[in-house]
Design a binder for these strands. Structure first.
Lengths: 107, 107
DNA sequence: TATTAGTATCTTGTATTGCAAGATACTTTG
DNA sequence: CAAAGTATCTTGCAATACAAGATACTAATA
């Protein structure tokens, strides 16, 4: 899997998964890795960034299987941004595909 | 336009445009910028990289409009890699869209 | 007790790469 | 000579994915 493709898109994937339900970091890694391989060293700094800019809030919850889980929940602003990012993404894909297919045809 | 989305994809865009015909750097900037805004400071280091890894070769050609143009031409290997990168890209887009739409549904 | 394995979070250092800003140089026009 | 358009290249910076490893909790096993 091309590492470079992932840049910036992972943030969108995380946000999109959080629109469904609140999740904790380890869960996000497993969920995303079904499609796109990522590691924990990527997710945790990203989640902290999302919290710092106010897109998510967090709360702790005990687990019967190990260390307590830190759940991430989208804020209202985070939800709004997610929508915008999604549109940006679809738009970007369209433009790239245009370049790949048509080249730069003027006629 | 989200800067991060571009990472890694620009290389593919450049290679794809070169499959059509040989082009020089300034031309590539203008062609790609019709769809995705990029700057010259991005293209020239990228082109040097592509040359270093053997995906393209270069030749100089005089111009009646200014400085001589350095044309870039795909090598056989470069053409092969371009095909693979394209497949990777389409595959990647499919997977991201899967995450965005379905989330990580198990049922 | 000690040890291992599984779950879960976090930090450090590194590599990649897009970009702003600016330097260089050629041609044409004034 | 100067200015504008074309064209290439370099430097320094910022963003971010990752490998590797540290930490910590629970459960099972010896």
């Amino acid at each position: 899997m091309n590492i470079q493709f992932k840049k910036g898109v992972l943030e969108l994937c995380v946000l999109a998964l959080l629109t469904e339900k609140n999740r904790y970091g380890y869960d996000l890694v497993n969920e995303i890795s079904k499609n796109i391989q990522i590691s924990e060293g990527t997710i945790y700094p990203l989640l902290r960034r999302l919290k710092n800019v106010g897109y998510v809030t967090t709360y702790l919850q005990e687990s019967q299987e190990g260390a307590p889980r830190k759940y991430y929940k989208l804020t209202e602003n985070g939800l709004k941004i997610t929508g915008e990012l999604k549109n940006d993404w679809f738009d970007f894909v369209k433009k790239v595909n245009g370049l790949l297919k048509g080249g730069g045809k003027d006629e």
